[in-house]
Amino acid sequence: MAAPVSKNVVFDVVGTCVSYDKLIETLDKQLGDKMRAEGVKPSMFIYMWVEAAEREYTYLSITNRYIAFDVIFASLFWRMLWMSGIEEPREFATEEDVKKITEGYMDLEVRPDLKECFDKLRAAGFTVRGLTAGDYGRVLGYFEKAGVEMPTEHLMSCDSFGVGKPDLKAYASTYEALSGGSELWFAAAHMWDVSSAKQVGFKSAYCSVLEKEACIDLFGEMDVMSDTLSEMADKIIKASSS
């Protein structure tokens, strides 16, 4: 009799399992009033900063100059102030401001229904894993602080192999390591992320909690599309059993 197929769901972490809300709150506390006086909304600044950091992280990686995301993120702060219309960024903010704001990254919190999502998947026989571009210790700390189970051996950082998402090699190495007789899903709230994982063979699950608009015209339909993480778990389980 054939052995049962192992089932895995690999989650992106930052933006998917955890939100950026605490980072926005930290920036608002540190520089919010000054930013609003310049017509800069803190939430918009954070998302612009994160998106720019993800781009530079990717560009450096695909040109064989991998640098950890956390390093890139901190370095870009002054550039993002300039691009927001602040003419003298290093007079507007101090190194201490940057230090306190980037420390806010350590305090990101998991989404309210993450534990429910993981519990549903595990009860249905799935192993829950994570693949992140973030620092391993920082990302593991998000789960530990929230009391959400994520065994250390089930979490992988791109830092460990020096290839950043969405380079297909970043997904392929994880896919190949798990592919023996497995049903493999990749789950993310970034459409660029999950659609890239689909290219190497993962079944794809997208949650709109971060981006709201899936932009299917750009990325195509995923195997599972949901508005919440808990709904995503239900749909993965249904698709798996069908």
Rank of each mutant, 00 (worst) to 15 (best):
D135N: 10
E91C: 11
A189C: 10
D193T: 03
S196A: 08
G125L: 00
V148H: 07
V200G: 01
F118P: 03
E38S: 14
V71M: 13
M222T: 13
I216Q: 12
S196W: 03
A170C: 01
L27Y: 02
A189K: 10
V224S: 01
E144L: 14
F202N: 02
K99V: 08
G125Q: 01
E144M: 14
E87K: 15
F202T: 05
E176A: 13
R65A: 12
S61K: 02
P42R: 03
S204W: 06
C215V: 10
V98D: 09
M44N: 14
G220H: 02
S195P: 03
Y57V: 02
G220E: 00
G147W: 07
L27N: 08
K120F: 01
K29T: 12
I86S: 04
L81A: 12
D234Y: 07
H190F: 00
V50N: 03
A188I: 00
K120N: 08
A189S: 10
V71E: 15
A124H: 09
M222Y: 05
G181M: 03
S208Q: 13
K238W: 13
A74Y: 08
L140R: 15
L108G: 00
K238I: 14
K238H: 11
F143L: 09
C117M: 07
D159C: 10
G164I: 06
Y136E: 10
A146S: 12
S179C: 13
E221D: 12
L131I: 06
L31Y: 08
W82D: 15
V110N: 03
K22V: 05
I216Y: 12
L218T: 14
D33E: 15
G85H: 07
D119K: 02
D113L: 07
G180R: 11
T127L: 06
G164Q: 09
F69V: 11
R138Y: 07
V194M: 08
E183Y: 02
A197F: 01
G201H: 07
P151G: 03
G162H: 06
G134L: 04
M222G: 07
L229S: 00
M232Y: 01
S19A: 11
T16N: 05
Y59K: 15
E88S: 15
E91P: 09
